[in-house]
Amino acid sequence: MPTLEHNAFVEMFRQTPELAPHFLVTLFHVDVPRHASVAVVESSLDQLIPVEFRADLVLELRDANGTLVLAIIVEVQREEDPDKKFSWPVYVTVVRARKRCGTVVLVVAPGADVAAWAAENIDVGLGFGNLKPLVLGPAVVPEITDPAEAVQETELAVLSAVAHGNGPNGLAVVQAVLVALGRLDQEHAAVYFQIIWNGLREPMRRALEALVMERQIEGEATLPSFVQKLIDRGKLEGMREGKIEGMREGKIEGKRETLLRLLARAGIALTDHESARIQACSDIATLDRWVDNVLGAKTAAEVLS
Rank of each mutant, 00 (worst) to 15 (best):
A150Y: 06
E274G: 01
F23G: 00
V94S: 08
D146C: 07
P133H: 04
P138G: 08
A297T: 09
H164P: 06
L24E: 09
P110Y: 00
E249I: 15
F86W: 07
R100N: 12
E214C: 00
L27W: 01
L27Q: 09
Q279G: 04
L24N: 03
F23W: 13
L295M: 04
V212R: 15
E245G: 11
S305M: 10
E218D: 14
L27E: 10
A190G: 14
G167L: 03
L136P: 10
N65A: 13
V212A: 14
G267D: 08
F226L: 03
L262A: 14
L181P: 09
E245K: 14
F9W: 05
T258G: 07
I72A: 08
P133V: 05
F53G: 11
A112R: 11
G246I: 13
L230N: 05
P142T: 07
I252R: 03
T26A: 05
L270S: 09
L178Q: 10
V177L: 06
H188S: 08
L19E: 02
E52H: 12
C281N: 10
Q77V: 08
F86S: 11
A264G: 11
G250F: 12
V51P: 06
E249Q: 14
I252D: 00
A297S: 13
V51S: 07
E209I: 00
D113R: 13
L68S: 09
A161Y: 01
K235T: 14
L70Y: 03
D46A: 15
R205C: 12
E220F: 14
A172R: 12
P33T: 12
V76H: 00
L262D: 01
T16E: 05
F86D: 01
E155N: 10
R248W: 08
G296I: 14
V151E: 08
G170I: 14
E155T: 07
V104D: 02
F128N: 14
K243Q: 13
L304E: 00
T299Q: 03
K251Q: 10
L27N: 08
